[in-house]
Amino acid sequence: MAKVKSLADLKKIKEELHAKMDLREKSNDPEAQVQIKVGMATCGIASGAKEVMEFLIEATAKRGISTIVTQTGCMGYCYAEPTIEVTIPGKEPVVFGDVDLKKADEVIEKYIKQGELVDGIIPVNYKTIDN
C-alpha cells in the first residue's frame, strides 16, 4: 500500500520528519542560530546539567527558537554549576552560572527572546582557540 497518496501526504511526512533533520539543517548555518553550550563535566552533571540541557533543547524547539545546543567540557566555574554559554547571532557570548530549570527558562524568555540581561552572568575571562 502506497504511503504517499497525495502531495498533502508528502507534506505531512515531511513535517513529521522535519524534527529529525532539523539539527542537520541548522548545522549548515550555525552562525544564524542561537548557540547554547552547556558545561557537562562531572561537576556540571552532578549539579543537574543534563536535565538543563534536555530542557533547553525541548523548550527552545517548542517555543520556535532556532537553537543549537551543544555540550562542552568544564568551563572552570565549578562554584556556579551548571553553567551555560549563550551566543545570540551577532553578539558576544554570555555565560550564565547556577542555571537550574527555572533559570534556564528565564534565560530563554528574557535574554534569548528579548535580549534583556538576567542575573547570574559570569564575566568571561578566557579565550577559546577556535574563535
Binding site: 524534527a19 529529525k20 539539527l23 540541557m53 533543547i57 545546543v69 551543544t70
Partner: peptide
C-alpha cells in the same frame, strides 16, 4: 519522540 542531540 526520538530526538537526537548530536549526529555523527
Amino acid at each position: 519522540m526520538e530526538k537526537y542531540k548530536m549526529h555523527i
